[in-house]
Nucleic acid binder design. Structure first.
Lengths: 344, 344
DNA sequence: CTGAAAGCGCTTACAG
DNA sequence: CTGAAAGCGCTTACAG
């Protein structure tokens, strides 16, 4: 049996032997568990460092934790997710946890499979970002594994935590911003939601929009259009919305990408933005800042959402069982697309 | 010991008992290993389905594979990565493998940690997308685990596979496109690379640019600017590049995001794009298509790159040891930013 | 083709 | 505080 010096793996057994303690003690040091003398602790730590010991995650997963958190993202196309992940990773950097992402490809079936896969891999917790999954399934998941949601407002949830932008407030911010500039016929460009949960961000923004319009006595001017997330659908809806006879003075788009398309269509129709129609987007993604876009947008501080969510998840894994719901205030970032008043 | 019906986990033992075979046989069926009678195979499969058996990934990882592939992405900001992941996930859908992403946050140290974490988690293979890691470290990694690179051209690699857009050709495409329209003073807007590998996509595009300029007798007009990936740096470099006295007739930008900034700066300076200066980007990301951007860009078919890379990785895990290098041809997608000839 | 048994590297009661 | 031993759910030789 020729076995070339195959550089024996350093296991907890190697470490224990090196430090002159039992495997059980070495394990306790590894997990920061109580019941180890300072002297032993120190020797074990020294051995781990000297030997370059790295715990075998699969073995830990057999009995204890994997220190892996699964993050489910519907896709990679929304630049806002990058902001969220910045916050998640920044928070986790000071913990023993590692975030690993799975992509649901925006399909319920794939999201479902992905969650099952993450459960199979004994992840310690799940962070679901804007999940397409029905609320019932999310509750089933949350009963099996610590779960935190971003981008889905709670419906009296008890099994999981949620972290959200105050989307209701986002809707009001947009309306008030336009109204303050003298615009009254303000439309909301929404997403076509087919069988999705009632508590999505899109719906909350719509509710805030409605409420603000009502408060300002503009109930009669409420106008909402829905379009699928495809370019064609968005353009078609924009064309229709911008017809001369019924053209609104301002449009609040539920997300930046839609706003960019609406601006494009408006220009094609020979309209001037913001003079003829003001536009506001949502998420304040990087492109808003480009002069060719100059899109006023509502910022929902993704890094804070991500960091809060990661913190809640770690807390839940640590034993907390009562649900927490965090809401972060949005703020409007004004740029050219909504500048000036209608009365100009 | 009160133990409420805690819904016993279905393990391979449960399955074996249910199917009336040994655990070893059940394991073979699970892995599609040879040496099982059709009858036994069928009974085991039926039991698995009936019991809703899901293999415990951590346990599999102890002895065999985890069927998890680690994908390292520098960040989530580049929309091109979404294209790559589409291809990866589409290919893997018909395999037992699951891709899980880690984000390197564009920092070498974090990328290094991430790779170690993935190794700790017994991933079966690694897909490194545009890694910041020094080539030496990549080779070390590749000796420990099957590895495929996207976005880093091989330097006589033997330990890993690579999949790349033909970036040299991209540079030539851009130059020829402009030259065909009568533009001669064509600049290349590049990325400031500090201590990075020589074989990055950015450099290959530069080499193609140089070669094409030379071929067309435009050696004297070669002009290359470098800027960090920050907005400020890009804008400053663009301002400098577009000064009246030495303004080029056309600019090939190494990536779309840079091109958008350059267009913005050009407009601010009162220049007309494409009349005064033509602009081409790279990656053909979604925003290029918007009328407000209308950016000519070079498409590097991300889904194909991703699918090829996933296939190579699965092959390598399957036992292939010779390296393969795949190059995919780019194509130019013309839009407003480069339309018309200089002579107009 | 089939199965009993060892073992992967940890964690967890449990006894000392 | 410390350690011997069982066991997590698989895979892998090995013998039959």
């Amino acid at each position: 049996v020729s076995k070339i010096e195959q550089q024996e793996r350093v296991t907890i057994r190697t470490v224990a032997a090196d430090a002159g303690v039992s495997v059980a003690t070495a394990s306790k040091v590894l997990r920061n568990a109580y019941g180890v003398s300072d002297a032993a602790k120190e020797r074990v730590r020294a051995s781990m460092a000297r030997l370059g010991y790295r715990p075998h995650a699969a073995a830990r997963g057999m009995r204890g934790q994997t220190y892996t958190l699964g993050v489910l993202l519907p896709d990679l196309r929304n630049p806002f997710f990058a902001e969220i992940m910045d916050g998640v990773n920044r928070y986790l950097a000071s913990t023993p946890y590692q975030a690993l992402l799975g992509l649901g490809q925006s399909a319920v079936r794939l999201e479902h499979n992905l969650v099952e896969n993450m459960l199979d891999r004994q992840m310690d917790g799940l962070l679901l970002v804007a999940p397409r999954l029905p609320i019932q399934e999310i509750e089933d998941i949350a009963r099996r594994i610590p779960t935190v949601l971003i981008g889905l407002h709670e419906a009296g949830a008890t099994a999981y935590d949620t972290v959200n932008n105050d989307d209701f407030e986002s809707g009001r911010l947009a309306v008030r911003h336009f109204a303050a500039a003298g615009r009254r016929r303000i439309a909301y460009f929404s997403l076509a939601v087919a069988g999705s949960p009632e508590d999505t961000t899109v719906i909350h923004r719509e509710n805030g929009y409605r409420a603000a319009m009502k408060e300002l006595g503009l109930t009669r001017s409420i106008r909402i259009v829905h379009a699928d997330q495809t370019r064609e659908a968005i353009r078609a809806a924009a064309m229709h919305l911008l017809r001369p006879a019924t053209r609104p003075e301002a449009i609040f788009c539920w997300t930046d990408f839609v706003a960019f398309e609406v601006i494009s269509v408006a220009r094609e129709l020979g309209l001037d933005v913001p003079r003829d129609v003001g536009i506001i987007g949502h998420d304040n993604t990087a492109f808003c800042d480009l002069d060719i876009a100059a899109l006023t947008s509502i910022d929902q501080s993704g890094p804070k959402l991500g960091a809060d969510a990661a913190r809640l998840l770690v807390e839940r894994i640590g034993g907390r069982t009562t649900s927490q719901f965090i809401t972060v205030a949005p703020r409007i970032v004004q740029r050219g697309s909504s500048a000036g008043s209608r009365a100009l």
